[in-house]
Amino acid sequence: MNMQTTMTNKPEKPVHLNPWRRWSWLIWLILVAGVYTWAITGLHFTGLQESAGSVSKSIVHGLVNPDWAYVYNGSGEDLVSLIIQTLAIALLGTFVSALISVPFAFWAARGEHEWGHLRSGSGKIVLTLIRTFPEIVLAIMFIKAVGPGSYAGVLAVSIHSIGMLGKLFSEAIENMDRGAEEAIVSAGGNSPQVFMLATIPTIMPEFISYTLYRFEIAVRSASILGMVGAGGIGTPMIFAIQTRAWSRVGIILLGIVVMVLLIDTLSEQLRKRLI
């Protein structure tokens, strides 16, 4: 018997990538280059102002020598009082928002037997619209309704946060473990009992954790809402910048940095213990 040890038929021609795959990098390159050319040529750069040098110098000087007298003077308009006010806006806004977000979350969560995702789809669209609506504009609208001050800030934070909390909550509902619910159903529980004894205890740690995370973000936004008059540390900040009181700006910046770092650390510790 004649064993064939050498390969007689040569392999076919190597498979070439089709031209699209082969040249796609070039198309991407041209696209990206086009986008950047558009972006760079479209902007009118103002360049440095003549005073930029001296302004930067006085900013640095102010930041290095903060106005320590402003930290606490008992007037209720000092740094510590306003930082506490900022935290109060964030806390109250986040809490109210977490309560309102729960029904939104159940609306937007995709159900297993849902036909065509009409309900959850519409909920997701509403949440996206709320998320995209600028918080600053909301704050200005609420200032028209309740006057300038931290109440408008609370309202702005509580409405704007629904967009993100509702989305996170609804995703938590979609991914939750259905075991406890099924157990209560098979033991003969009715739907309020299933909800109270299975759904809420299963979902609660995640809800609280997301709410804490959102609180961290709310602290940052509450500290700038004051720039349009919605209370908190932002109001003296924008005054100090407009009047070029850089040592005042320096101490407020320092206050905000310390506040944000503290809240982030605290909330991170709490979240670690939750999950």
């Binding site: 440095l48 936004s221 500290s223 932002g234 910048i241």
Partner: peptide, 15 residues
């Protein structure tokens, strides 16, 4: 930790 609007206010003063 620095909020974006706050940075914007400072850079508007410089640039």
């Amino acid at each position: 930790t620095l909020p974006d609007l706050l940075l914007a206010a400072i850079f508007v003063a410089i640039f």
